[in-house]
């Protein structure tokens, strides 16, 4: 295949999914308690996007992956220790606030500006990748906003598969309602793809990939430009943990027969 692709993956860091989260309100609005202390991971759906990007690049010689990430430098560095051994990419870090409560529109503006300024990026060959939603804000809008800002009008969300053809066109499977996929064919790049899980397993850690990546990652982190996010007119009235707590009836001694009978009644009850 002769599709040399320029894949830009937007990915943020999020607290490791197993952490206990508690909201706090500080001078800059709401946040998560101890967010800087909690272990972080690359946003899971964006990580799928990164692995898919690496897979595409491996199959299309002359291609390249950039990983554009807005977040605190310290967190990015920490997450890179876990991610950089998996696939090859060039990190484009932007030192700024991250978390669920920052404004997606402001985040998108910063990301779009950074992508537009990438040296050597051919916008005609651009595939803008990211997660279809994040594990922080979970709004699923940032990537579209970046795409619009870059003038890309072929956008796909909830993507599980991309298949390139000889002529440079590609087929995309997007998740739609009812556990189905919508299949579309796009004539070619540029396009925006917000990834769901995809079909690739998480790549294994390859020490050589890590070593090569880290040579460019550390200097990039040192030079990361600070970005301030504008959040005009967004007000949080409240942020709180859910109070829903059920009174659980625990049945330890019921026979399977009795449980089944009770469940039949429960399932049937309106």
């Amino acid at each position: 295949m002769g599709n040399a692709l320029h894949v830009v993956v937007c990915a943020g860091t999020v607290p490791d999914p197993l952490q206990t989260l508690e909201p706090i309100t500080g001078p800059n609005g709401p946040g998560v308690k101890n967010e800087m202390m909690l272990p972080a991971v690359l946003d899971p759906w964006a990580a799928s996007a990164l692995y898919e990007a690496a897979n595409l690049v491996a199959r299309n010689p002359g291609s390249k992956v950039w990983l554009v990430s807005l977040g605190s430098k310290a967190k990015l560095q920490q997450v890179m220790m876990a991610v950089a051994q998996k696939v090859s990419f060039e990190l484009v870090p932007i030192d700024g606030p991250i978390g669920g409560f920052t404004d997606a529109h402001a985040t998108a503006a910063v990301l779009a500006e950074a992508i537009a300024a990438l040296p050597g990026l051919n916008r005609e060959r651009l595939l803008l990748f990211g997660g279809w939603e994040s594990a922080t804000r979970g709004a699923g809008v940032t990537l579209q906003l970046v795409g619009e800002r870059l003038g890309i009008i072929d956008q796909f969300q909830g993507v599980d598969q991309i298949e390139f053809r000889e002529d440079g066109s590609f087929e995309v499977l997007e998740r739609v309602e009812g556990g189905k996929h919508q299949a579309s064919v796009c004539m070619g790049t540029p396009a925006v793809l917000g990834w769901a899980t995809g079909n690739l397993a998480e790549p294994r850690n390859n020490p050589q990939t890590g070593m090569a990546n880290m040579r460019t990652i550390m200097p990039a982190l040192q030079k990361a430009k600070p970005a301030a996010l504008q959040a005009d007119g967004l007000h949080y009235i409240s942020v709180a943990l859910p109070k829903q707590h059920r009174t659980t009836r625990i049945e330890k001694d019921m026979t399977p027969d009795a449980i089944a009978r009770e469940l039949v009644e429960w399932i049937g009850a309106e």
Binding site: Q77, Q78, M81, A82, Q85, N205
Partner: peptide, 23 residues
């Protein structure tokens, strides 16, 4: 945990050393 994190970040930032967790 936090002390390790603090030290590790400085060591990594030096650029001389690479630390790989999960390995």
């Amino acid at each position: 945990g936090q002390f390790n994190q603090w030290v590790g970040a400085q060591v990594m930032a030096s650029g001389l050393v690479q630390i790989w967790p999960g390995t």
